[in-house]
Design a protein around this nucleic acid. Structure first.
Lengths: 251, 251
DNA sequence: TGAAGGTGTCCCGCCAAACGGAACGATGTT
DNA sequence: AACATCGTTCCGTTTGGCGGGACACCTTCA
């Protein structure tokens, strides 16, 4: 049961249907009807009826092999309206650009995708020597400031999968990572120096949506420009920018 | 009124709510309550009630300036589950890879974003001389095979905006483009030879989702390898691949 | 083999709650 | 000032959603 005290506003059936959709944003592997019913605290038959509506509209679908429900392709049809909506370009991008101007380093926006992270937006530094940011590119989660931010707010299952990743170097300290993740959750930012790329340093801070952690905002550049004093200055502006975007996202 | 004959299955309130959400995938600028009510053929008060539910869950939100409704940030939280879901990598990517192997040229998947197009997925050719495809990169709509496909299935407003684009070269024939778009809709594919890049040629075909046109699939490479006979061969395989993905998306 | 527990699906009687007409205040337009 | 159109709220009617229960189908124990 997610929400014991119902908001008691609007249409109940719709509230429940949307609750079901939100369940999917938490589980990556798909959900069975009974799991959903347990999660939202409703009778199986009720959930079944709601799901058939969403099924016929393509908002959810059944995985071919298993009988589990997953999000449907219709969501894809909504994406470019959200993802490239006016607000994301007229609200988030300016914040990123301002952050770039304040630090004169490359600014990136990452979301987690399974056990990887993907850069969904970037504003590059104007310096001749700079971090080149390709939108859409993916990186591991266990290295880099934004990777660790994404990991710090990921579910336990994802963390486990990442730690079990065979491509992690042998000398990588998992204990060290776990304490770092705790510090990130406590402090609200992450630092990485020469982790992903030798010669590069980065700072990152979490961005929260309406219901949960959404993305990581990072500033990255050549390690030579990230002096101790610059670093502490950047920490402030990155956290401010992330907080501003968080505020924008919860409108 | 979108759907005069209701499917009469599942929960009506949910069906209506999802219909409202689908309205947004068509209009890029946001919709007022009355517009939505007109579109789905319901009473204003009914739409208002449904919208308050979706508003409280963050599925829609009101634009700060105007009173228009637009899709909310909660949709973002669903995206990475769909966009990078197992199926998109285990279903669409293999089709793209097979197409790459059949043509030994670079294969790209584009969606339209306003008056541009963005490459959301790519499988590169293995040839030493090849079209290098960067995921996330954007291109204009009025040149290139996939650009024209995206334009052929875009709404009239977008087409108008694109034709009014001041960055279009002076010698560009808009009449020619319009007849090309008609042919694309008729034939189901587009060809471009040395349009976007000199020395490059491309073929593209439309991919349809459950409710509407979604994306364009393209094969591109050096024009020297796109002989007349190769061209007609590629047209077939591109259309087949696009049709296969369309089938997958409607599950 | 059969009992036990887990699925997903379907049916149906009851009554809560969704529907839409109507009215309201606020804006903007002729 | 009259008019049109907007978003919002209220309320009586009755419709359609609710969930208990039944069912068939699994797998897993005894």
């Amino acid at each position: 049961m997610i929400n014991p005290d119902a908001p008691q506003t609007g249409v109940r059936a719709v509230d429940r249907a949307l609750d079901i959709l939100l369940c999917f944003s938490r589980s990556e592997t798909g959900l069975s009807l009974s799991e959903i019913a347990r999660e939202v605290g409703l009778h199986k038959s009720t959930v079944h009826r709601l799901l058939t509506s969403m099924l016929s509209k393509g908002f959810v679908r059944k995985q071919p092999g298993t009988d589990k429900y997953v999000l449907g392709w219709t969501i894809l049809e909504l994406i470019h309206n959200v993802y490239h909506s006016d607000e994301l370009t007229t609200a988030v991008l300016p914040v990123m650009t301002r952050l770039r101007d304040a630090t004169s380093e490359t600014v990136s926006l990452y979301i987690r995708s399974g056990t990887e992270r993907i850069r969904i937006q970037a504003v590059e530094s104007m310096e001749p020597v700079r971090n080149v940011a390709t939108i859409g590119k993916t990186y591991p989660l266990y290295v880099g400031a934004s990777g660790k931010v994404l990991l710090a707010y990921a579910d336990a299952e994802t963390l486990e999968q990442v730690l079990a990743d065979p491509s992690i170097p042998a000398d990588f300290s998992r204990e060290d990572l776990l304490t770092q993740l705790e510090n990130i959750r406590k402090d609200g930012y992450a630092i990485s120096v020469q982790e992903r790329d030798s010669g590069a340093a980065a700072l990152a801070a979490p961005i929260f949506g309406r219901h949960r952690f959404v993305a990581a905002l990072s500033v990255s550049g050549p390690v030579t420009r990230f002096t101790q004093s610059k670093m502490s200055e950047y920490i402030e502006v990155v956290r401010e920018s992330a907080a501003l975007i968080t505020k924008l996202l919860s409108h």
